[in-house]
Design a protein around this nucleic acid. Structure first.
Length: 498
RNA sequence: GGCCCCAUCGUCUAGUGGUUAGGACGCCAGGUUUUCAUCCUGGUAACAGCGGUUCGAUUCCGCUUGGGGCUACCA
């Protein structure tokens, strides 16, 4: 199947847009087809600098690379494929040619009304009791267009370059039926549809025209787009009919919503997909999360890689109702993904981040085992440097931290505890017993038992002194990682402070 | 207002004409003989309402309510 994602470069790529792109991508890949990226830059006023770059780089980050259309190649924006150009502003002649065809065969007409005249008409209609005035079959006969003007008057105006638009001539009294893969049959009455502008006075097409012409010319089989397009579906159906073209299949996916309800919008949080890459979420996590918003595999499985999604995704398991974009589960997913990595993958990812703060990490031969200790403890990679702090830097002695009510550690017993710990640890690593996790455990548990301390009374202060952190891997792990000499040094140093 | 779409725990969702309405996130409690995290166990919590159809509806139909979208020479 040939599917497409067709964003407008009017801002940063929205998470909802990313999800739509994902669904299109998954279907293309599942069917061994082609995923196309087309740029719908037909609104010159709303276009924003950098938006196109953001769309492409975000898709690229997410692992959704277009097979055709506007693509990123060696960091440069270029076009690929035989159906180009894929940027609508470069297709203006095409739209003009096709819209002329519509005018010639009577499915469209020229309209010369000014903005003021349109406003005036709407106002008058409302006063007259028409609650929803639109440029429709009854009103168009009172307006200034090629249906009401004589052909001489029309050519006169054209000669004078009078600004005008081209409108679709919506047929009267028609029932317009369409099939939506997600919603089934949807039906509209033609009298509720106004004569949509197809070509604007600046010569640019509107979405309605450009979208239909391009989907046809680019041989798109299936259009997956947001539900906000459902109300304009009849216009598109009418256009396909007017051209005599076979319409593609449609799937209008439910919208992503704000926590408080309403279409997900900027005002209420982070809706730009690139914010999530900036925050350190893994691209796979974002994809996994977005796929599960409005779709489920029918099993209780929840962790999916892109290739698993390609295998399992199907349109018939997409929800009809909108889904609240609630990122609590996103954090959980990130944790799950981190825990499912191999230690090597994990270490490779965090090493550069840790090294930014602690350059020693770059030549740390034990980095892998050290990374392993925090793999289950972090959700975001930017938490890593702090968790490595005690390894590359000796922490200062923090008596407030060392004293711990719950562990029954009071400052007055710390010196005694320290001296017995040091005494016993001295016997490790030098002689027959190696300095390793197992022996550290045996020794320290035996110590607690023989001297009548609770485990926590030995281990809490030891860990607090060694790391200077409220939370960290356990005392044994830390002592093993630091090594005999460093561990004993730190403990002796602490002794002096008491 | 008009047109269109939708409706199961707080959130994401499974589900069937007869189920103790299932799972996940979150939250709470307990456990994993030191903290934190992980992990494990348990708990909390839902079929919007009203009418039909039916022996029986959360499920099918209708209405109401509620939510959402669209209603531009924006997409």
């Amino acid at each position: 199947m040939r599917t497409r994602f067709a964003p407008s470069p009017t801002g940063l790529l929205h998470v909802g847009g990313l999800r739509t792109a994902l669904f299109n991508y998954l279907i293309a890949k599942k069917t061994g087809g082609t995923f196309i990226l087309r740029i719908e830059d037909t609104d010159q006023e709303r276009e924003e600098d950098g938006a196109l770059e953001n769309i492409l780089s975000t898709l690229n980050w997410a692992g959704i690379s277009p097979d055709e259309g506007v693509v990123l190649k060696d960091g440069k924006i270029t076009e690929l494929g035989d159906y180009g150009p894929y940027t609508q502003s470069n297709r203006l002649d095409i739209y003009k040619k096709y819209v002329k065809e519509l005018v010639d065969n009577g499915h469209a007409y020229l309209a010369f009304d000014t903005k003021e005249e349109l406003d005036q008409m709407r106002e008058q209609e409302q006063k007259a009791g028409n609650p929803s005035p639109k440029y429709d079959y009854s009103i168009r006969m009172r307006m200034c267009n090629s249906l009401t003007l004589s052909s001489d008057e029309v050519s006169e105006r054209l000669k004078k370059n009078t600004p005008h638009v081209i409108r679709l001539k919506t047929p009267e009294g028609r029932k317009i039926q369409a099939q939506d893969i997600i919603r089934g049959k949807v039906e509209f009455q033609s009298h509720t549809i106004d004569d949509a502008v197809l070509l604007k006075s600046d010569g640019f097409p509107t979405y309605h025209l450009a979208n239909v012409v391009d989907d046809h010319l680019m041989e798109i089989d299936l259009v997956i787009r947001g539900e906000e397009w459902l109300p304009s579906l009849p216009k598109h159906i009418l256009l396909y009919e007017a051209f005599g073209w076979k319409a593609p299949e449609f799937a209008h996916v439910p919208l992503l919503m704000n926590q408080g309800g309403g279409k997900l919008s900027k005002r209420q949080g982070d809706v730009s997909a690139s914010i999530y890459s900036d925050k350190g979420y893994l691209p796979g996590v974002m994809i996994n999360f977005l796929a599960l918003l409005g779709w489920n595999p029918g099993t209780t499985e929840e962790i999916f890689t892109m290739s698993e999604l390609i295998e399992k995704f199907s349109l018939d398991r997409i929800q009809k109702a909108g889904a609240v974009f609630d990122t609590e589960k996103l954090d959980w997913l990130q944790g799950q993904w981190i825990r499912r990595m191999t230690v090597i993958e994990f270490a490779d990812l965090i090493r550069p981040i840790v090294a930014e703060k602690y350059p020693d990490a770059n030549n740390d031969d034990n980095f892998l085992s050290r990374a392993g200790l925090i793999q289950e403890r972090i959700t975001f990679f930017n938490e890593a440097p702090e968790m490595f702090s005690y390894i590359y830097e000796r922490p200062s002695i923090d008596k407030k931290l060392i004293a711990n009510k719950k562990q029954k550690v009071t400052l007055d017993i710390v010196p005694k505890i320290l001296s017995v710990i040091i005494e016993d640890l001295n016997c490790l690593g030098g002689g027959e017993l190696d300095w390793n996790l197992e022996n550290l455990k045996t020794t320290l548990f035996a110590l607690a038992e023989s001297k009548g301390y609770k485990n926590g009374q030995i281990l809490w202060p030891m860990r607090a002194i060694l790391t200077g952190l409220p939370y960290s891997p356990g005392a044994f792990e830390v002592a093993e990682i630091l090594g005999r000499e460093e561990t004993l040094d730190r403990l002796k140093e602490a002794q002096k402070a008491f």
